[in-house]
Write a protein that binds this DNA or RNA. Structure first.
Lengths: 209, 209
DNA sequence: CGTTCGTGTAGGGATTTTCCTAGCCGGTTT
DNA sequence: AAACCGGCTAGGAAAATCCCTACACGAACG
């Protein structure tokens, strides 16, 4: 029997999932959370075998939430169920401590399979994303690689995504605006961005911003 | 018997909904679409009483999709099921021709109730949003009012959200960059935006961009 | 040990965008 | 008719940003 907790801010999504799992004999939904803080609260009270987690939760969410949960319950398998099928997000989720990552556009059978894998302690990665990562690491694709950003560049990416201007960032970091501009140019080149709007969109899907 | 079509790009969401509706005797899901174009295609083939539509579909989506469907099938009740509980989005969806608007964080009973209302030809608006709109129209809240934008301003908002620069927009619209800048300033003031990043974020939640 | 590379830092000049101001036009009010 | 207002249009001056170039410094490399 797999005792699981569903964390998703959309009631209808949660109910739908519960209905799906009601068809499966050895899966039992023992709790639900609709915010990051509530999730943290619940985990103190119930004992579970699997956490099914949405990436976009109100309050604490995304990477930060995963990292925090993983630090506190290292042996709890976390399967991330996300809307975004972008490599960076998946990679960051996994690096933060999730054991599996699956997009919501997969079918229920795949979800079940992923759940069983994760519960048994094995990693699971969405097939489509796995392929993308494979292609990427084999060098056939070059692009949008957050890892290639230096710390300073990533820091400035975040500040830009929050809507700060080059000058505001310069002031905050106590460096020249020319320097900020240089970092911005370089990070945009590395990420393959064509406009500041791309930065904001990217950051949004990442959960920053 | 309500014959309905579910349009949502996430398989798991669709399956979950189908499971929910399987508990309801007089509701039957007769078709599913996972993209705007597929939806348009399907509507030519099947006869339905209700369209349950997600705002964020790949391909054609959001307002534009609703407007198009409504023009083609004026008597088809469209219930929009959206992740966003922002007034503007709801208002635009309704104005484009949707008969109902509900956020995904509601419970299944509410969804059912909304469906029945819409099928019977009555409008349905998410209670939380209805209240917001009431407060807003009573003048207690002023802010972020898309309606107050002129056509030109909204057009430029969209282009900005797509990542075009002020100069590019000026060139495309064959007007002075100063003019574009003026529109930008005014639309940002009207919407209460503090940076271009806000524009992009807003447009993303709206389904544009 | 010299070279190269990545990173953080800017300057100078060019370009873009803002800020403030204002004209024009069509519709409404007085 | 005169006055007014909202929406679209810019100009000139000023600020912000970009582009190209450069340099220092530490790490990796031959």
């Amino acid at each position: 029997m797999i005792r699981m907790l569903i964390a998703d801010d959309h009631t209808i999504m949660r109910e739908g999932l519960k209905q799906l799992f009601s068809l499966v004999a050895d899966v039992q939904v023992v709790a639900e959370a609709e915010s990051g803080t509530q999730l943290i609260e619940l985990l103190r009270q119930v004992e579970i075998d699997l956490l099914l987690l949405d990436m976009n939760m109100p309050g604490i969410s995304g990477e930060i939430l995963i990292a925090r949960l993983h630090a506190q319950y290292p042996s709890l398998p976390i399967l991330v169920l996300s809307m975004h099928n972008e490599i960076h997000i998946a990679q960051r989720a996994l690096r933060a401590g999730a054991l599996g990552y699956l997009t919501k556009d997969r079918d229920p059978e795949t979800l079940l399979a992923a759940m069983r894998r994760v519960v048994s302690g094995q990693r699971y990665l969405d097939p489509g994303l796995a392929e993308q990562i494979a292609l990427q690491s084999s060098g056939l694709k070059q692009q949008t690689y957050v890892e290639s950003l230096s710390d300073r560049e990533f820091q400035i990416l975040r500040l830009l995504a929050h809507g700060l201007s080059v000058n505001q960032i310069a002031e905050q970091l106590v460096i020249s605006n020319k320097t900020v501009s240089t970092h911005k140019t370089r990070l945009m080149e590395k990420m393959g961005f064509g406009s500041t709007a791309d930065i904001v969109r990217f950051a949004m899907t990442l959960g920053i911003s």
